[in-house]
Simulated scan of single mutants.
Amino acid sequence: MSLQLRCLYTHRYSLALVMTMLLLAAASGDSDTAMNIKAVLGHSVTFRCPSNHSEAVERLYIQKIINDKEKFINGFYKDRDMPWNEYQIRTKVNKMDLSMEMRNVSVSDEGLYKCYIFDIGVTNPKVSDIILEVTAEYSAPTITPDCTEHRRGVSGTGMSCDLSCSAVGGYPQSTIRWTGLNPSLTNVIYNWSSAHNDSKTWTINQTITYNCDQQTNVSCAIGGAVSHTITICKTQSFPLKVIAAIAFVLVFALLLIFVVVMKCFCGRQHTPEDQSGDVNVSLTEYRSQLKSV
């Protein structure tokens, strides 16, 4: 086929496609209730256009609504090739069951799609709406405690804990849920979330202060991801400083008792030689006194 004939064929086909688009816009109000489908970020999803398969299908167009305008995604018209666009790299149409597979789904693929089915010899298409919802699981949340003692009388244990919970890579945006805590003793001091520029996935972070009333097990959840469980507000029968002071006093008392016992024992101990010498000295003095008399 010469270049001139190719250009003529492309022009005629483009004109036919434009006319078809106008018909689609006119028929878009005849669609039934929208079909909802879900896809996991980075995975594949299949768009199935409703049909009773009782009549032969001549054309199938799947288009996405972007800024209130329809954008052609993929489809078929008898055995002709469709105009190329960036979606054809990730999409594949099945003419037998009137479906389209989309691979490597991204957050930007989320939204409303329209499916147009043209039966042979029929001008007005059958229109159906398909709403694609994209989800991505958050990473396992990280929970970090920081507990300190405060003035007695503020709570039952005299202790408060700052608890931080964070997770990344999820979609759509979600909130943090805490389990095991008394809401009346909880105060949110920091709440932050941000969407990644490219992937559009979210990073969520929250820090709360919890005034302890008793020992408790706590965990946090973001979306469907749950953190490990930690124990906070642990009570001690004796503070560490008190235990150290008692130990020091006991050691000092034992040393003092040992010194006193050793001193008494050493002062009272005598040998037999010392005792006989004392007796001899006493007898000699007695005899000297008798002679002088």
Rank of each mutant, 00 (worst) to 15 (best):
M102T: 01
L41Y: 10
S51Q: 04
A26M: 07
S31V: 08
W178L: 04
D146N: 10
R151K: 12
D97A: 03
S108W: 09
R59F: 05
C233W: 00
A140G: 06
N191W: 08
G277I: 15
G153W: 05
S184E: 12
P239Y: 05
K263S: 11
C220M: 05
G42M: 02
V57R: 00
Y171K: 01
T135L: 00
I246P: 05
F118Q: 02
D213V: 08
V134G: 02
A27L: 00
V260W: 11
Y113N: 09
S276C: 12
S194N: 13
V105N: 00
A244H: 11
A26F: 08
Q173D: 05
E110W: 01
S237H: 05
L255F: 11
S106Q: 12
Y138L: 01
I66M: 06
W84H: 14
Y77I: 11
P239E: 10
M96S: 15
Q214K: 15
M102K: 02
N280H: 12
E133A: 06
L290V: 12
P125H: 06
D32G: 15
C266W: 15
A25D: 11
M21D: 12
V249I: 12
P172M: 03
L255G: 12
T235K: 04
L15G: 08
T175K: 09
L22C: 09
E101G: 05
Q236K: 13
G223A: 06
L112E: 14
L181I: 07
N187M: 11
T231V: 14
C266P: 04
V242C: 12
P83M: 00
M21S: 09
N211M: 10
